[in-house]
Design a protein around this nucleic acid. Structure first.
Length: 200
DNA sequence: AAAACGATCTACT
DNA sequence: GTAGATCGTTTTG
């Protein structure tokens, strides 16, 4: 499968645009001479303004510093004994990112299953915490430059989806006034969280 | 120093 | 569908 590493300028535009454009892109991880690949099927945008759920909303701290870095870096955050993998967007210092919520496993599935305690269900890579477990992504990737690293990067194999394949949903639990269309997902993909979790 | 919280997940029914 | 586990980070006293 031929593919190219995503260039840095891919991440520099608006967070929602990056979140939408990331659908179909490949998440690539190499470890112990093996390669894991997943196709991104669900993302979520976290904005600098009007988004109280965004970790950057209450200012910069030691633990969210990566989010304020230049676009194309990883921001990895631990929660509930697992990790969430984000990609920094927009300009250096802004504090926005896209959370990768689900991928479809493409290559190295047996190793992903080992990381997930032999999980052979759809849940192998469905959900931000589970996909990090499957790909062995943890905080040591915080601040990681995703275009230069040999262990973790994103790639494009030319796969595109049109509007009828890609859905947009408001985020559950946004507390600031109106709800915003921040969640992007591929319709009819079993690795996307169930439709009951995606409020239209 | 203690308490509260959460960008989650599992194990139930 | 939802109660409960779980733990690093942040907030509060």
């Amino acid at each position: 499968m031929p593919f190219e590493v995503l260039p840095l300028d891919f991440y520099g535009c608006s967070t929602q645009t990056v979140a939408r454009e990331l659908l179909g892109k490949l998440l690539v991880r190499t470890l112990s001479r093996r390669r894991l690949i997943g196709r991104i099927v669900e993302t979520e945008a976290y904005l600098a303004k009007g988004d109280t759920a965004c970790h950057a909303a209450r200012g910069r701290t030691k633990s969210n510093a990566a989010m304020f870095g230049p676009p194309g870096r990883a921001y990895v955050y631990p929660i509930h004994s697992r990790h969430c993998f984000n990609i920094v967007t927009e300009a250096d210092g802004v504090g926005t990112a896209v959370l990768i919520r689900a991928v479809e496993p493409i290559e190295g599935i047996d190793l992903m299953q080992e990381h997930r305690d032999r999980d052979r269900r759809l849940e192998l890579t469905r959900g931000p915490g589970r996909l990090c477990q499957a790909f062995a992504i943890d905080r040591h990737f915080d601040h990681w430059n995703l275009t230069k690293g040999r262990q973790l990067w994103l790639a494009d194999d030319g796969t595109q989806f049109d509007e009828k394949d890609a859905g947009i949903s408001t985020r559950i639990g946004v507390t600031s006034g109106r709800e915003l269309p921040l969640r992007f997902f591929l319709r009819d993909c079993p690795y996307v969280s169930g439709p009951q979790r995606l409020k239209q």
